[in-house]
Simulated scan of single mutants.
Amino acid sequence: MNTPDSHFDNLAEHFADKIYNSPKGQIRLALLQLDLAGLQQREPLQILDAGGGQGHISRWFAEKQHQISLCDTSKPMLEKARQLNEIAGLTNKIQLHHCDIDTFCQSNLDRFDLILCHAVLEWAEKPDLLVNQLIDQLKPGGHLSLMFYNRHSLILRNALRGNLRKVKRGDWSGDGNSLTPHQSLDPEEVYGWLQQNSMQILEKSGIRCFYDYLPLKVKQTYDFEDILELEQNHYRQQPYIHMARYIHVIATRL
């Protein structure tokens, strides 16, 4: 198995609070939607949301009549997705699959116009193989939206906090009971995996270039809209992209 099995089963509500109901989660969602707006506005696509959790991005696409297959290993996450899909009236647009990405890819006979894989790669035992699997599920000319946990940001954040010994050890693993990923990823390595599989990178962006570094007093002083504007004004510029907590890449299969 190349993706975590039940890690999120007991963290579903915590995940919703920390990711979707928090400023950092709202920044993440806003920037992803900004990046993906062009694809969302296209004629209906066949989309795979790999490790899609509660389906926030899936519903956003489904509102524009796209057809989505969402797979995830966590039953509580999928149950929450089912409830939210029903409330939104989008049940017929989003098929839920309780399985890991490996299993889905092995059993699926169709190919997709777009694959979404956001904050999953860093939990995989062999992230390079997961990238290969996802690309195999794409139609020629199809797009992959890949967001991953950036090692550069982790090093910088720990250095700023004075965790110099941790930086020296290079020990970034979570404790198994939190939302801290198992591993961080070197962006250049991920870009290499894509290019080795005949993928052309169209866009790179940084998801939360500044927010995670801001002192609490600053976060409390400024309106959320001001901080979001700061992120939007810099998230596609170097060097800020590679300072961000997560990096989002959109690539197309040649």
Rank of each mutant, 00 (worst) to 15 (best):
N2H: 15
P4V: 10
P4L: 13
F8K: 05
D9I: 12
A12R: 01
E13I: 10
H14K: 13
K18P: 04
K18E: 07
K18G: 00
Y20V: 09
N21C: 02
N21G: 03
K24I: 10
K24W: 05
G25E: 11
Q26D: 02
I27N: 01
I27R: 07
R28L: 14
A30C: 05
L31Q: 09
L31E: 04
G38P: 04
Q41C: 11
R42L: 15
R42Q: 15
E43T: 05
E43P: 05
D49N: 03
A50W: 05
G52V: 06
G53I: 05
G55C: 12
H56C: 03
S58E: 04
S58M: 10
S58Q: 02
R59Q: 07
W60S: 14
F61A: 04
E63W: 03
E63P: 07
K64T: 13
H66W: 10
Q67R: 13
I68Y: 00
I68V: 14
S69W: 11
D72S: 07
K75P: 11
P76G: 11
L78S: 09
I87Q: 08
I87T: 12
G89Q: 14
L90S: 02
T91Q: 12
I94A: 04
H97Y: 15
H98Y: 05
C99K: 04
C99D: 05
C99P: 08
D102G: 15
F104E: 13
C105Q: 13
Q106C: 09
Q106T: 11
R111W: 04
F112D: 11
L114A: 06
L116Q: 01
A124S: 14
D128T: 04
Q133M: 12
Q137F: 05
P140Y: 02
G141T: 08
H143E: 12
S145V: 10
R157I: 08
R161T: 00
G162D: 02
G162S: 01
G162T: 00
K166Q: 15
V167S: 02
V167I: 14
V167R: 02
D171Y: 09
W172T: 08
D175F: 04
D175E: 01
G176R: 03
G176M: 00
N177L: 08
T180D: 09
H182A: 12
L185N: 06
E188N: 03
E189V: 09
Y191M: 07
G192R: 11
W193C: 13
Q195P: 04
N197Q: 14
M199S: 10
M199P: 10
M199D: 06
L202Y: 10
E203V: 07
K204G: 00
I207P: 08
C209F: 01
Y213I: 10
P215N: 00
K219V: 02
E225T: 06
E225L: 06
E225Y: 12
E229R: 08
E231P: 10
E231F: 01
N233D: 07
R236S: 11
Q237H: 11
Q237Y: 00
Q238K: 06
H242W: 07
A244G: 06
A244S: 14
R245P: 03
R253V: 00
L254E: 08
L254I: 08
